[in-house]
Amino acid sequence: MKSNNSIALEIFKNISLSKKEIDFIDSKFEKISLTKGDVLLSSDTHVTNQYYVFSGCLRSFFVNSLGKDHTTQFAVKDWWISDYISFFTEEKSVMTIECLQDAEIYRLSRKDMNSLCEEIPKIETFFRNKMEKAFASFQKRILEYLSLTAKERYIKFITTYPEIEQCVKNYHIASYLGITTESLSRIRKIII
């Protein structure tokens, strides 16, 4: 990959990198093109990769024992997605990741991530900061789920992630908010 088409320069845009570091980073990422409806990751598998979203929209979800799916995350440009329980613990995945819009993503294995962190300490700092923000975000989402009404959760969602609302179907948003599509329709009628 040439430096001007470098995924390293896209992902690590706020980090000063040498040509050698850029080439090393680029060698660790694999580009993948997905079409709407493609399944990137299935539940009950071992996950060894995480994915950087260059374009498009994906969602991760799990299906409960009653067959109902629960959206846990959306991922759009410049976001990362995986089944992190499996990625970090080597347990089988519980998540499925599907493509909601045609997407271009970059795969990074756990082994290659560790190699990048060992060779380029500022990349380790990048990943540590990313994980800290993700942990805080997931904890905040749990607290909001426990303390806010469905209407408040929806308003928070559309104000925080307006670009995601445009990419996904109503039932995906309802699944993410933990409500039915009918409840979401009622909430939308109230706030419009």
Results as ranks from 00 to 15, higher is better:
S42W: 12
I105Y: 02
E119A: 15
I173N: 09
E124N: 14
D102G: 06
S86P: 01
E98S: 13
T180Q: 08
E152Y: 05
K169E: 15
I123F: 03
N170S: 15
L40H: 04
M95F: 14
L41D: 09
P162T: 06
I123C: 07
I192C: 13
F74M: 01
L100D: 09
A103Q: 07
I105L: 12
P121Q: 10
M131F: 12
S33Q: 09
F88S: 02
Y52F: 15
T89L: 03
A134E: 11
A174L: 11
A75H: 02
F87N: 06
R186T: 10
E91A: 11
E152H: 01
L143E: 07
T181N: 07
S18F: 04
N129V: 04
D23Y: 09
K189G: 05
F62R: 04
E163G: 03
K13C: 10
I158A: 03
S82F: 08
P121D: 10
E165H: 12
I155M: 06
A136N: 13
F24G: 06
T48W: 01
K13H: 11
V53R: 00
L41C: 09
H46T: 11
Y51V: 05
I120G: 13
S137G: 06
I123H: 03
M1F: 03
S18Y: 01
Y106Q: 00
Y171P: 12
K92A: 14
S6A: 02
R128Y: 02
S42G: 04
Y52T: 06
S109N: 00
K140E: 12
I158K: 01
E98I: 09
F54L: 11
I105W: 06
E90T: 13
I97G: 01
I179H: 12
M1S: 14
Q101W: 03
Q73H: 03
I123P: 06
D44E: 15
L108R: 08
N64P: 04
F62K: 03
W80A: 04
E132P: 00
S33G: 01
T160W: 00
F88Y: 08
N64L: 03
S42I: 12
I25D: 01
K2S: 13
S82Y: 10
I85R: 12
H172E: 11
S55R: 05
G178A: 09
L100V: 10
L41G: 08
K19P: 02
T72I: 12
L148G: 05
E182P: 07
C167Y: 14
S16H: 09
C99Y: 06
F12D: 05
S65C: 07
L108A: 05
N114K: 12
Y52I: 05
V53M: 06
K130A: 08
D112C: 10
D69F: 08
T71V: 14
E30K: 15
Y154Q: 08
D102S: 14
I15M: 01
I158H: 04
T125Q: 14
I97W: 06
E132Q: 11
M131I: 08
N64K: 10
Y106P: 03
F62G: 08
E165C: 11
S86E: 02
I173T: 04
I97F: 04
S60G: 13
